[in-house]
């Protein structure tokens, strides 16, 4: 086969692959992108029940309650609004009242957030960037807290 035709074959295969991958990626992105909400966002924006989303903020002091079995109820707050969260399972080791947390799940019909995963971070001085921003937006970010997020790993 002439080099030119060989090159054309390779280019055509590559284009077909890239096209297929782009189509796959776009449809998959549409279905699996999860938006991040702060508790205040959740109160003001309308969210369809069942839509998957992430909610981030601080675990409200004194809000953690154990329910039946492995069920846990707590509130996530940006210090302006607090949203009750229901989770069943083992909380991550870094989950603590007053600490930053990101939960993923969907809003239930009763207005409680049903989480199926709870992310707390590797480091107790670390604040998830989304949570920091949510606190800044609600006007409760203290610059003092920022200096605590030092270089520790």
């Amino acid at each position: 086969m002439a080099p030119k035709r060989r090159r054309m074959t390779v280019i055509l295969v590559a284009l077909a692959l890239l096209g297929a991958a782009a189509a796959l990626a776009l449809t998959a992105l549409e279905d699996s992108v999860v938006f991040f909400f702060s508790p205040s966002d959740l109160a003001t924006k309308s969210v369809a029940p069942g839509q998957r989303l992430r909610l981030g903020g601080l675990v409200e002091e004194g809000s953690v309650q154990r329910g039946d079995g492995a069920r846990i109820v707590f509130k996530v707050t940006d210090l302006a609004t607090a949203v009750p969260v229901v989770y069943e399972g083992i909380l991550p080791d870094l989950f603590r009242e007053g600490q930053g947390v990101v939960v993923e799940g969907s809003l239930g019909p009763d207005g409680r957030f049903e989480a199926d995963s709870v992310l707390a971070k590797h480091d107790e001085t670390y604040m998830p960037p989304e949570v920091a921003e949510a606190l800044k937006k609600s006007g409760h970010w203290q610059d003092g807290a920022e200096s605590e997020t030092g270089d520790k790993e």
Partner: peptide
């Protein structure tokens, strides 16, 4: 690459905070 960096790019462009989870990678 797209799935990993898309949230960063979208955020930098002011498109809101999102995350792309396992379903995306499983589908592509």
């Amino acid at each position: 690459f797209v799935g990993t960096l898309y949230p960063l790019v979208l955020d930098a462009l002011g498109g809101g905070k999102i995350s792309v989870g396992p379903p995306y990678f499983e589908a592509t």
